Amino acid sequence: MNKKNFKSGFVALIGRPNVGKSTLLNKVVGQKIAIMSDKAQTTRNRIQGVYTDADSQVVFIDTPGIHKPKHALGNFMLKTAYSALQGADAVCVVVNAAEKIGPGDRLVIERAKNVQVPLFLLINKIDLVSPEQVLQAIESYKDLADFAQVFPISALEGNNVPELVEGLKEVLPQGPQYYPADQVMDHPEYFVVAEFIREKVLILTREEVPHSVAVKVESMVRNEDDKIEIHAVIIVERASQKGIIIGKQGQMIKKIGKMARRDIEKLLADKVYLDLFVQVQKSWRDRMTNLQDLGYELDNY
């Protein structure tokens, strides 16, 4: 590793909800660290993913989708997204090639333009559209800001993602290696474990339990069977939601646990015993104290 010419820096991924920022982050670092679902605003905290090669380290900051907040949690998510722009060495605005440019995209670009660093436009989901539509998308966005580079990409398939990383490396300053070469995220494991459980709730309960769900990992210890024993609580706002998550004869919570355990075992490279239970906390998203208990603390970001 040539430390003398080593380049490093922080790159913020910003965009409307559901444009594929988390999918891109997972693709770049080569493993799943951010949760994915087709529900908007899946990401709540800023998640940092780390890409390292022989001559560079790029720290990607995945942010919650920019949206109009409806409660304290929404406000927190918005502040988190905008605070990611502070201290970034480059900003990537991610948009959806399959959708026409909208006011949300314009708002994101206006915010991003205020940061005096190279601005990249990533037109994602090109696997869903024709080459002509990609060209039309480029045309409709290119006059909105002075973009350093425009990359049509597929975060899912990986098209143009290596080229994007190379483009970002070009604009990053010379700097230190912030993280060990084999580290791909900066969040503690229990945070990612909680996120994986929440992802399964979102996927399996669909519209029945919207964003009024949070997960708190109470403990993570190795037990006498040499498994990592995890106790986690799924928090909802209404008793009816608790019933949905538990399911008929406990079938739904078993399914959530089984799917989450698979991802957690991959992450920890270890056998896992996962114990889940459900708790009702009315209007938890509107209480800052509740949010802080669940790990949503802006001071940490």
Rank of each mutant, 00 (worst) to 15 (best):
D293L: 15
K169Y: 03
V213C: 05
R261A: 06
Q292H: 14
Y179V: 01
D299T: 14
N26M: 10
Q177T: 05
V272Q: 01
K266Y: 11
A81F: 08
V201Y: 09
V150L: 08
V150Y: 06
M36V: 14
D146Y: 04
M288G: 07
Q48W: 06
Q57L: 03
A34T: 13
T80H: 04
A34Q: 08
V59P: 03
P131L: 04
A40R: 07
K7D: 07
I246H: 03
N114C: 09
L85V: 00
E110Q: 13
D143S: 15
D143C: 12
A81T: 07
P162G: 14
D286P: 05
D225M: 10
D146K: 14
K248Q: 10
G250Q: 13
D270S: 11
A148Q: 11
V233G: 07
Q251H: 09
V215D: 03
A97R: 04
Q174P: 07
I35M: 05
D226H: 11
G295I: 12
I235S: 02
Y190W: 15
K39E: 03
I109W: 01
D146G: 06
P131S: 06
V117T: 06
F76I: 04
T63K: 00
K255R: 15
I123P: 04
S37T: 14
I230M: 02
I228R: 00
K7F: 07
A84T: 00
F10P: 01
Q281M: 11
T205L: 08
R287K: 11
L107D: 10
L144Q: 06
K70H: 12
A112V: 00
E139P: 03
V29R: 00
G87A: 13
N2Y: 13
G247P: 04
R46V: 01
A97C: 14
H211A: 07
I235R: 04
G9P: 03
G104V: 01
M288A: 15
E218I: 10
F147S: 02
F76R: 10
L122R: 01
D293F: 15
I47M: 02
S83H: 10
A148I: 12
P173V: 06
K271R: 14
K100A: 10
K70L: 15
A34I: 08
D146Q: 09
I101N: 09
D143R: 14
G65D: 06
M220R: 01
N159S: 13
S212D: 12
F120Q: 00
L298P: 09
K255H: 09
P173R: 00
R261F: 10
L274G: 02
L276C: 05
E208H: 11
E139L: 13
P210M: 10
N5W: 12
N300Y: 12
Q48C: 11
I126D: 09
R261P: 11
P210K: 02
K254F: 04
V91H: 04
V19E: 09
D146R: 15
R222C: 05
Y273I: 05
E166M: 14
D182V: 09
L291W: 03
G158F: 10
L276R: 01
Q86P: 02
V95G: 05
D293Y: 15
D182P: 14
I264P: 04
L25K: 08
